[in-house]
C-alpha cells in the first residue's frame, strides 16, 4: 500500500472535486447558469488525455533509444487510456454545447480540430494492429506517435486561437479564469486536474500490467 499512496491521493482529489464542484458558489452568468459547474468535470478529461499522450510520446522516444519492448507497451496503453478520456471529453462537451450553444456539434474550429486529433490517435491504434511483426510495429508506431503529438497540440491549442471560436479561451473568447476574482473556483479546479490525471495514469498502469502478463503468457 505504501507505494500506492498516489492512487489514494487521486481518489481523494477527485472525490473532493465532485463534492466541491457541486457545492461551491459559482458566478451567476446568463446562458451558462449552473452548467458552469461542468468545468470541474469536462475540462479535466482533456487534461488527463493530454498527460497520457505526453507519457506515450516520452515512452515512444525511450523505445526508439533503447529498443526495450516494455516502453512500447507503455506507449500503446497510454494512448488506449487517453482515447478513452478523449471520448469522455467529447461526449461531455457535446452535452454541454447542446444546452449552451444550441447544438451538440456546431462547426467550431476547436471542436473540429479535436475530432481530427481523435481520428489521428485512432489511426495510431489501427496502424499498430495492421502490422504483424513486433519490432517493426513498435518502431513505426513510435515514429508515428512522435509526429502525431505536436500536430495534436497545434490542432487543440494553437489553431483554434487564431480564428473565431465559441469555445472559452479561444479566438478572442475569454476563458473562465478571468471570472475567478470573487469565487474560489480555482481551488477546486486545480486539485481536480491533478486528481483526474493521476486516475488516468492509474488506469494506464493497470492496462500495462495486464498487457505484460499477456505477453509473458504468449511467449511461453
Amino acid at each position: 500500500m505504501r507505494q500506492n499512496w498516489w492512487k489514494l491521493l487521486a481518489s481523494i482529489l477527485v472525490l473532493y472535486s465532485i463534492i466541491g464542484g457541486f457545492l461551491i458558489p459559482v458566478p451567476a452568468l446568463p446562458i451558462l447558469h449552473e452548467s458552469i459547474r461542468n468545468l470541474f468535470f469536462h475540462v479535466p478529461m482533456w487534461f488527463a488525455m493530454l498527460t497520457l499522450y505526453l507519457i506515450s510520446v516520452i515512452y515512444s522516444i525511450k523505445y526508439l533509444n533503447t529498443g526495450n519492448e516494455k516502453y512500447d507497451l507503455i506507449a500503446v496503453e497510454s494512448v488506449n487510456t487517453g482515447v478513452f478520456f478523449c471520448f469522455c471529453g467529447l461526449a461531455t462537451g457535446m452535452l454541454w454545447a447542446n444546452i449552451t450553444w444550441g447544438a451538440p456539434w456546431p462547426n467550431d474550429p476547436k471542436l473540429n480540430s479535436s475530432a481530427i486529433s481523435t481520428l489521428m490517435y485512432l489511426a495510431y491504434l489501427v496502424l499498430r494492429n495492421s502490422l504483424d511483426e513486433e519490432q517493426k510495429r513498435a518502431k513505426i508506431s513510435a515514429i508515428y506517435n512522435i509526429f502525431a503529438f505536436p500536430v495534436m497540440i497545434a490542432l487543440l491549442f494553437i489553431l483554434p486561437r487564431l480564428t473565431d471560436s465559441l469555445h472559452p479561451g479561444n479566438g478572442g473568447n475569454p476563458g473562465f479564469s478571468n471570472l475567478d476574482l470573487d469565487y474560489n473556483m480555482k481551488w477546486v479546479l486545480r486539485p481536480t486536474f491533478i486528481g483526474w490525471i493521476l486516475m488516468g495514469v492509474w488506469i494506464m498502469t493497470i492496462r500495462y500490467r495486464i498487457r505484460l502478463l499477456e505477453n509473458k503468457k504468449n511467449n511461453i
Binding site: 492512487k7 481518489s11 477527485v14 472525490l15 465532485i18 463534492i19 457541486f22 457545492l23 493497470i206 502478463l213
Partner: peptide, 29 residues
Amino acid sequence: IYVVVAVVALIFIGLVIYLFSIDRRLKKL
C-alpha cells in the same frame, strides 16, 4: 442537492474500491 452529491460521491467511491480490487488481483497474478 446534498442527496445528489452523496449519490455521485458514492458511485465514485464504489468505482475506486473496484479499481483497487482489480489492482490487488493483478498483483496476485
